[in-house]
Every structure is written in C-alpha cells, then in structure tokens.
Design a protein around this nucleic acid. Structure first.
Lengths: 178, 178
DNA sequence: TTCACTATACTACCTGGACGGTTTTTTTTC
DNA sequence: GAAAAAAAACCGTCCAGGTAGTATAGTGAA
C-alpha cells in the first residue's frame, strides 16, 4: 500500500527520531528502521541525507502554511485575523509544532539554506500581519510573544503553567481588538 | 601563558565552530585547531565531547546571569527592573546571544540534560520578573516577545528592520511603565 | 615535581552513500 | 483479457572515510 504515503511516513519517522533521540541519531539507517523500510528503500525516496531533511522542512512548511490559511479563511474578515490565526494555531497545536521543532533543528544542523521555505513563510506572514488593520508594532509584538512560547518549547526551557499561558493568550487576544 | 584562559579560549572556539559551520563540524579535532591547541591539550581540559559542551553551557549561563544581574544592579530600584534588564540585554547584546545560540544548539544536539543550567536561569528570571511590581502577565508577555526576537535570530528566520525592532523595543519599554 | 600542555600513533566504531539485485505495480501489446 | 514489457518501489551488503577516545613519550615553565 501507501504510494505517496511512504515518503511522508519516512518524514514522520525522521521527525520522531530528532524529537526523541536528537539530531545525532538521525541516521539513514535509524530512519529506515523507524519507518519500517530498508535503507535502500529510503534512499530511493530521498537520495541523500540532505534531501531527507529538505523533505522534512518542505513538508512542514506546506503544512503550517495550510493550517494558518485555513484558520484565516474561517475567520470573519475582521481586522487582525492574521495575527489572531497565527497565535491561535501556534498556541494550541502541539502537533505541528513538534514537527516544526524537529525540522528546524535538523535543517540548522545539516544546512541552514534548507530553512529557506520557513523564511519565506515567515516573511509572508509578517507582511500579512502588518497589513491587517491593526498597529503593525502591536501586531509584531504579539507575533514575537507567540514565537517566544515556541522557543521555550523547542528547548524545553520553561513551562509556563497552563493558567499563565492561558492568561497570556487571552491578554494578547484582547489586545488585538483594543 | 593563559592558565584559566585556555579553557575559555577553547569554549569560544567551540562556539565559533557551531555558529559558523554548524553542529556537525563541532569535532574535537576541529575545536582543538580553532583554539590553537593540540587534541591532547583539549582533552586535558575537557575529557570528552560532552564535557566540552557542558563547559559551553555552564560558561554562557554564568555570563548571562552576571550580565542581567549587572544591569539590574545599575537600575534605580524602580519596579519592572528585571524585565527591563532582560529586554535591554537581550535586545542590545549581539555577542552573548551568539554564544547562547551555539550553546543551546550544541547542548540540544549532544544531550538535552546539559541545558539544565539554562533552565535554572530561566526559572530564576521568570520568578523575579513576575514579582517585580508590575502585572505578571504583562511582564511575561514582554519576556516572551524578547525571546521571540531570539528565536528569529537563532534560526535567522526573519530580520525585523532596525527601525521596526527599535519601535518594538520602545513600545515594550513604555508598556512597562504604563 | 607538578601542571599544562605537544605530537603522534592507534583502535574500535559508525555512517553516508554506492551498487546490484529483486519484487511489485502499471502500462502496453497482442 | 492474458501475457509481456517496462517502470517504480524497494532490499541488503559493502566500503571508504571520518570520529571519539586511548595511549604514550616528551617538553618547558613555575
């Protein structure tokens, strides 16, 4: 089974390894085993390690873009819908974030250029966020604060308690409409 | 020459390699060469790679702690001096941030437990920031926004222009005293 | 004598990637 | 619609190169 799916299974396996065992354990063999495929099979889909990591980043960038776009689409067309969607998705979606973390770390380790799709995404969002009917500085601060949560989760540096996190989230949301 | 200094030179060399060439090029040999020391010499100071990375993290944590503490000390004892110092130092000090980036990435790659000193630091600051005379939620948002800048610089994801960055900085500062 | 190294050699292991198959699926031909 | 051909998807082994860490003998300074 699984035609186009195999590639994606392999990408998930790679992310899982990075998340659970760290970059240094992201080897072709380990990825193959985790994905339930042979090394040769893996190399058929991704002809090099760099190609594999590129696959991770491209995949997650596409996913994240869709996720935000979907959230924006179902918003009423009120002002601030981009920053609101960005904050919503990032605060409340542990899953794509995990993959994001793995992809970022892997790309940074293997070849920084592989981060370009994320940079593109970031620039797109920043533009939208700043041109969405609210003060761009305020919008940028909300965006940065959201990213701050991200940083903290990426390195597991500090757990805001759930209540504090919720308070922050609500205060940011209210601030948008102020 | 250079008694206690050599160790620190080695740590700087290691950070430089991580920053410029990425984690995978942080080998013992490369570090020794960059530091102008023999491999044996390096291993004399840091008996394993993990010890080296631990040295990086410990050193930068100490540095960062001092830096913030110094900034707090020279503040008038007005409310919000902790968050103000945190934002000041992080916004305006590209140097320790670079080392921080390298240390975080190296520790995350080699062994997440090595991040513990940073976690401790983070917890200390969060406590101080929340008990410093201003609304803790507001203080936390400022802290998160500051960290957002960090994330962006760490992966080189997006350059806020200098003006926009300055606007953000000023708006956050004003917000503290509001 | 000890400390802080240098220089070199060596081991044991791991990893990316090449390579030459084999099996499964799809397409074409009769 | 069955057989044949071709393409796609995959397997498993091998190897050159690199790496952490060990070992060892020696050097100069305090």
């Amino acid at each position: 089974m699984a035609r186009a799916t195999r590639k994606i299974e392999i990408l998930h396996a790679a992310s899982k390894i990075v998340s659970e065992r760290g970059i240094f354990n992201l080897t072709l063999e380990a990825t193959a085993i985790e994905a339930g495929v042979s090394k040769g099979g893996l190399l058929y889909h991704f002809p090099s390690k760099e190609a594999l990591v590129k696959g991770m980043v491209d995949h997650l960038a596409e996913n994240y873009r869709d996720k935000i776009a979907a959230s924006v689409a179902e918003s009423a067309n009120d002002k601030g819908k981009w920053i609101k969607s960005y904050a919503d998705v990032t605060f409340n979606n542990p899953y794509p974030n995990k993959e994001m973390h793995a992809g970022l770390l892997a790309a940074k380790a293997v070849n920084s250029d592989l981060l370009d799709p994320i940079r593109t995404l970031y620039n797109e969002w920043q533009t939208k966020i700043e041109q969405d009917g609210i003060d761009p500085v305020k919008a940028t601060i909300i965006r940065l604060a959201t990213d701050g949560i991200w940083l903290s989760e990426l390195f597991d540096l500090h757990h805001l308690g759930e209540e504090r996190k919720e308070e922050v989230y609500l205060k940011l949301k209210n601030w948008i409409d102020e």
